[in-house]
Every structure is written in structure tokens, then in C-alpha cells.
Design a protein around this nucleic acid. Sequence first.
DNA 1: CGTCGTCAAGAGCGGTGCTCTCGTTTCTTG
DNA 2: CAAGAAACGAGAGCACCGCTCTTGACGACG
Lengths: 243, 243
Amino acid sequence: MPTTPTQTTAGPAPAGSARQRVRAELVREITDVARRHLAADGAAALSLRAVARDVGLVSSAVYRYFPSRDHLLTALIVDAYNALGEAVETAEAAVDRADVGERFATVGRAARAWARANPHQYGLIYGSPVPGYAAPDDTVGPATRVAFVLRDILRDSWSSGALRAPTTMPRSAAVWADLHRLAADFFTDVPEAVIARGVLAWTQLFGGINFELFGHLHTVITDYDAWYEELLAEMVAFVGLDA
Amino acid sequence: MPTTPTQTTAGPAPAGSARQRVRAELVREITDVARRHLAADGAAALSLRAVARDVGLVSSAVYRYFPSRDHLLTALIVDAYNALGEAVETAEAAVDRADVGERFATVGRAARAWARANPHQYGLIYGSPVPGYAAPDDTVGPATRVAFVLRDILRDSWSSGALRAPTTMPRSAAVWADLHRLAADFFTDVPEAVIARGVLAWTQLFGGINFELFGHLHTVITDYDAWYEELLAEMVAFVGLDA
DNA sequence: CGTCGTCAAGAGCGGTGCTCTCGTTTCTTG
DNA sequence: CAAGAAACGAGAGCACCGCTCTTGACGACG
């Protein structure tokens, strides 16, 4: 197939002609308005026509910048991943490097705080995939930012000796193989058992946010703040980061 | 307000006049077709008009049975909760009562198997709430079935002495108060620390399913079956049910 | 027998995603 | 510098959506 005439995200030249600058500006404005609509009414109610009206365009004109509603939604997904990633990264960076347990807990706190402040954007990335899903490649990079912060904490704490190795070991060869590949590709010298518990703690961090935000703890927990602190303390101990 | 003329789920009389029987039958047929559409195309693509066409009705006739598309969707949510609950209950009931660890793991396995077999229905209940959510009261009963199975396992294993009490304790008075209320209302004599770990394991069971089904483990885990077994083994030990 | 409630159907409203055409503006290239 | 190419915004239009209202037929019940 020929090169698509309508570029989705950025023009071919970095910041070239005047036309490309105004184009990039309009793409940004459309995404901004769409992000506001998403935050206000949720992904299901996001209407390309309504966004176009707010921008001051007719609906068909938006198709010069986003080939479909799903592409616009994908841009918002990338947007949300980056916003969450940045919130987590800046929060974690402010913590004493040596206090690895606090660094880990801070990641969870920042993720939960962002999720509560932006529930619709959070639901877009950690809820059910909206249409027929099939996440494009653009999303994988931003999607991994939080996981990479957690990885760095585990790596730092292992190399500094601040991490207690768990007593349990991977129970099957298949799991061990996956963890071994992760150890080789992303971790350095971190034991497979530590990585296993790290992945479990990672899913628990977001599983807890999901359960709270989606109402599954409704009749169970009343003080969500205190409960999430409990969850964090348990997970810090679970991965072996408690002092 | 007066009693709504169009009943949503069932007629006022149990199985009364002929008219009410054919009405209940039609309600069932509409939900059946809607469930098939949901399973095939997802909740976002569920169209009341398309369902009506498949049933052999005109779209406006469906409004005699469901006052809005959201009410039809709510019926499907209750449906999904009951299907998942029944799958979990029957699977758990087939396990030796004394083998509490296996009973716990079986709950997780059955939930995951059902979720993988019915991803759209699972996403409907454990993904992001679809429209403006506000889950009606009809849903709370079916929604608690899985949690109650887990509760029974914890209660049985504690009373039989098969459960190791965790060494950690709730870290704040607020959490302790919530757990104490749960202990009084739903558990009997089970320590608060055990309940805390039970709730954490519960969210981990579904958090793991969410991460797998929604693609967050894409570049992390390749053998999902083996990984979930690892998760189950860790959680069984975490709540103190390992032999 | 007549009345009244229930029912399916149809027309219609405003909204949606998306496509195509048309006239204009801007950039590029000879 | 001028001609052609590319990009652009606007508009009309298609098929579909949820939902409302009205109409006429049917059956139960006094």
C-alpha cells in the first residue's frame, strides 16, 4: 500500500514548514478537547462530532488529522499512559534513593492518586479494551513506564543488598523460563524468584486500584486510603523490601 | 412515583396468567440474543435495534420489556455475575472439603477459565463500568457469589485449624475497624489479619486475570497457564492455606 | 357485548461515524 | 515566477443508533 496521505501523530519533517506547524497545533488542540470530553463523560460517550464542534471544525475536517474515531481514542490512550507514567516517575524521583520500600510504596500511591483524579482515563487504559482492542505499537512504549520504575527499584535494591530474597521458588519450568528471559533482558543479576514476586506485586498494585475504582470493594472497605496503605505495606514486605 | 408499568426482569405474579408467561419467555429470548451479541461483538457494539431484528421484533417493541438499552445491559451484567458465580461454585464444590488450599486454587482456576471463555462478559463486570455506571441493587447479590465462596473456604479452614495465622497485623485503626466489621458480619471468629490477606488474595486473583486478559502481561509472560498457577500457589501460601 | 390494558408496528427526532465532492489555500517544483 | 500538486475546510449524504409517540389489532375481564 502507498504511504498514508494523512499522518496521524506528527508530520514527516520535525518542525518544518508553517503548514506543518499549524497542523501539529491543530492535532494538539483536537486531542486536548477530546481529552476534556473523555475526562468529563467517559470513553463511550466520546463523540468525534462533538469534539469537532468544540474545536470549531466540521466533523469531516477532523478526518484530515485522525483517520477514525478509534485512532483518536488511541491517541488518548497513549496520552493517558504518559500522564500516569510521568506522575509516577516524578513522585518516585523525589524519594530518597536508599529507601527502596518507600520508593515502591510511592509508586503505588502516585498511581492510585492519578487514577482517582482521572478515573475515565484510567479506565481507558486499565479497564476493558474499548472496541476490538488490538493495541497498536504506539502504546507499548508509554505503557511500560510504570513497570520500568518498579523494575529499577527492584534492581537497585538487589544490587545494594537491601532486598531479602524470597524463600519460594518458581514452581514450574515454564514460569522459570519466562522469568529467566526477563532477568536477561530487563533485569541484571536479580534472581527469578524476586522477579516473580515483583510481577505479582505489580498486578496487585493495579488490581487494588481497579477493585476500588470499579466498585468491587463497595461493601467491603470504607476507608480506601487506609486500605491501600495496608496493601502497599503488605506488598513491600512481599517482595522483600521492608527494612 | 407509581409502580412502573413495564417490569424489567420478571412479572409481579410468579408464573401467573398466560400473558405473563409469554412475556417472561420474550424477556428471556431478548436477553439470550443480547448475550450472544455481547459475546460476539462486545458491550460497546451491543445495539438494541440489532437485537430486536434478531428476535423478530421492531426496535420500539423491545421497549415494552426493557425501558432502555442500559437496563438491557444491566440484565446482562447480572447474567454474567451469575454465570461466573455458578461456574466457580460448581468447580469448588467438587473439591475435597478438607483440602482447603486446593479449594482456594480451584476458585481462581474456575474464574480464570470462565473469563477466558467469555472475555466480553468478563470485561463487562470486571472492566471499566460502561456508561455512567451506578450499578443497580440487582447486581450486588450475584456479584458477591465468588467472594462468598472464598469466605467460606477461609472460615472452614480457620475453624478446622488448617490455616496458619499470618504474622502481620493491620497497620491502622481504620483498616482494623473495616476488618472487624467484616469479621462480625460475614466471618465468625476469623482473625482480622486473616481477613486482610484474604481480601488481598481475592483482588490478586482477579487482578491477575485482568492483566492477562487486557494485555498488560503481553511482553512479560508467555505461558499464562503456568503463570496463573504460580500466582495461585503464592496466594494460597499468602493467606496461610499451604499444607 | 363492550371496555380497557397490552402489544407490535410504523413514523419520526436528533444524534453518530464515515465518505465523497467541491472550491480554496498553501507548498513545491520546474 | 508561475504552474501543478498537495492539503485543507465545508457541505451533503449514507446507514445506523437510542428513544418517543401514535395507531390499530388483539385478548382478558366485568
